[in-house]
Amino acid sequence: MTRTRLATALAALGAVAAIAFGGYQLWQSHRLDERDDLRAAYIDTAKDGILRLTTVRSSSADADVKRLLAITSGDFRTQFASRTESYSKVVKDAAVTSKGTIISVGVERFDDDTATLLVAAHSEITNKGTTAPETRDYRFRVVVTNGDPQTISKVDFVL
């Protein structure tokens, strides 16, 4: 093999390697973008679920409960659904108004099927027995199940 042919072959091999490496980097970048999108969707679902849990009004208690149930699944849905009537009754009878806000969210772990997140929330609550809003701060461990749509399948209070 002559030097010219060897140089041409090495140049072609280098070009093929560069194209393959570029393709691999593009694939890896796309894969990371998909993971970031999934992580962001888990965060959005956890925030939405906790806002629905911490925001309730006596004037719309039944609708508020339905909105929360719409984003739940699994054990959390089963437990909450069994208590919706009594929950709504207490909220209405006590003239409760609770406005929740999300303080922060951290992802403990996630994969393609589920995510476990820690959510810090704040709530201002009024009811028949209060003259000024009472504030409450909460920390929740939330499990989000991936699907169409994503749902909250477990909620625990964290001390």
Rank of each mutant, 00 (worst) to 15 (best):
F157I: 11
L38C: 01
D37I: 11
E134N: 10
D37F: 14
T84I: 00
V16G: 09
D93N: 08
A41Q: 08
R109F: 07
G14F: 11
R31S: 15
E34R: 15
T8A: 15
Q150L: 13
R31H: 13
T126R: 10
K92Y: 04
A70T: 07
F157V: 11
D112W: 04
T2K: 11
G22A: 04
G74R: 00
T72D: 03
R77L: 06
A18P: 02
L6A: 10
T131Y: 13
A115Q: 05
V119N: 01
G147I: 01
L13Y: 08
V91E: 08
N146D: 13
G14A: 14
A61N: 04
T72H: 09
T101G: 10
T130E: 09
L10S: 05
A15L: 15
E108H: 13
R141L: 12
S60R: 06
D113F: 10
I102A: 01
K89Y: 09
A15S: 14
I125S: 03
S153V: 00
A81P: 03
I50A: 07
R57S: 15
F110K: 01
A12R: 01
V96K: 04
V158A: 07
K66E: 15
R57Y: 11
F140E: 00
D148L: 09
Y24D: 05
A9L: 12
D36A: 15
A120F: 15
L26M: 13
Y42E: 01
A7C: 09
A41C: 02
A81E: 14
K89S: 09
D33L: 12
A20G: 05
E34D: 15
A70D: 12
R109G: 07
